[in-house]
Design a protein around this nucleic acid. Structure first.
Length: 398
DNA sequence: CACCCGGAAGGCTA
DNA sequence: TTAGCCTTCCGGGT
């Protein structure tokens, strides 16, 4: 019953169920093609972007579920009754130099979760703040076990029939979402439901919606030449997620099949952030040419690690991944300047080229031939893939 | 010391 | 089971 434990199937059933229950404009379930963990990491803006007409209600419904799940977990665990901020969670194995993650009061449904900027680089714990009414939630990262409600929804597998009744995981709960309550929340919502628009920047598009930007944004200090020494937690929106047993911290990014699981995409999204929130760690040098500079390799690597739920990520490892892109001509090093790289293909091209093998083939055939026809061949292979991919619906709004 | 490089092996996911 | 995409580790170079 904990939405964080839903499978993709559960998520899509929940979507259907909500649509019917709340008489919502049907939402393309492809836009929410993710598991519960990822779903919980979406911000309200993400919801609105994926479901402009129903996102508000869906978001609030989910927040209610989450709130309830947290409450249930607390009751079940009953471990943290000792006042102030309980330290309950180690997010995952052997975190090195990672910032604290502070989960905020879940009562404010419109602001899922808060994470402080990467801090002193010494703390390796994730702290879930207590619900105002009681202790905190405790989740165990390493144990692999799920706390409260450990009978995971995965047991209600694909066998469940498509009906108008709530998905199995929902029916099991007495009342998970009160329709009126959801509508109330929507009404009381301080910010009007406004679709989020990511303006394209320059020649490179910003892949709207692919990155649960809130999650990332919240991990970062506000744009500043030098990261602040970490004051109070910055408003951040990472829902109170259970430390992922297997999944990714940030999301199985929906909306695009490549998603931000890919490094180049991640870099592009940071570079193209509409508010330039990440320029302290990565910034365009010449956007037109795709040249960018990594200004803080360690923080960038931490962010990437966060994205992939590899919290031991460092720049050495991340740069290794980047070097694999040399071979397929996605990236190249800018000679002579440290930490300076160049994208060799526009993101629009890359987005459609899901199969690296395609790039590989292209590149290797290039090598076999001579250097001259390189780009053309690569391009034509990409063109083919683009043609194929264009047959499927495209969420892009470049 | 920090960055850079690429081989090798292995993990995770779809 | 497999392919893709890293992640991790490493030895070596600048």
């Amino acid at each position: 019953n904990d939405p964080r434990q839903w499978s993709k199937h559960n998520v899509s059933m929940w979507l259907e169920w909500c649509t019917e229950q709340f008489s919502l404009v049907p939402t393309d379930s492809e836009n929410f093609h993710m598991n519960g963990k990822a779903l919980c990491l979406l911000s309200k803006a993400d919801f609105l972007e994926r479901a402009p007409k129903a996102g508000d209600v869906l978001f609030n419904a989910l927040q209610l579920l989450l709130h309830r799940a947290l409450h249930t977990a607390r009751l079940t665990n009953g471990t943290h009754g000792n006042g102030s901020v309980p330290r309950n969670t180690v997010i995952t194995r052997d975190i090195q130099g990672f910032g604290q993650v502070l989960l905020q009061d879940p009562a404010s449904y419109n602001q899922p979760l808060q994470v402080s900027p990467l801090s002193a680089e010494v703390d390796s714990t994730v702290i879930l703040s207590p619900d105002p009414s009681s202790g905190g939630e405790s989740v165990q990262g390493d144990s692999g076990g799920q706390q409260a409600g450990s009978s995971t929804p995965s047991s209600n597998g694909p066998g469940s029939a498509k009906t108008s009744s709530p998905p199995p995981s929902l029916t099991a709960t007495p009342l998970l979402v009160d329709k009126q309550g959801v509508m109330d929340l929507v009404r009381r919502s301080p910010t009007p439901p406004t679709p989020v628009v990511f303006p394209p920047r320059g020649g490179v598009s910003a892949f709207p919606g692919m990155l649960p930007d809130v999650a990332l944004h919240s991990m970062l200090p506000p744009v500043a030449a030098k990261p602040p020494v970490l004051p109070a937690p910055v408003a951040l929106t990472v829902p109170p997620v259970t430390p992922p047993a297997t999944g990714r911290v940030v999301a199985d990014a929906p909306g695009d099949k490549m998603s931000v699981r890919l490094l180049w995409d991640f870099l592009q999204q940071l570079l193209n952030d509409p508010e330039q929130k990440y320029r302290y760690c990565i910034t365009w040098k010449d956007q037109g040419k795709g040249v960018f500079k990594i200004t803080d390799p360690h923080r960038l690597a931490k962010l990437w690690g966060m994205q992939k739920n590899h919290l031991n990520m460092n720049f050495d490892k991340m740069s290794r991944a980047m070097r694999y892109y040399y071979r397929v001509k996605i990236l190249q090093k800018e000679p002579g300047e440290r930490l300076c790289y160049r994208f060799l293909r526009p993101p629009t091209e890359l987005r459609y080229c899901k199969q690296r093998s395609l790039l590989d083939r292209t590149v290797s055939s290039d090598a076999a031939a001579n250097r001259e026809g390189e780009e053309e061949e690569a391009s034509s292979a990409l063109d083919m893939s683009i043609k194929e991919e264009c047959l499927s619906p495209c969420l892009e709004n470049d």
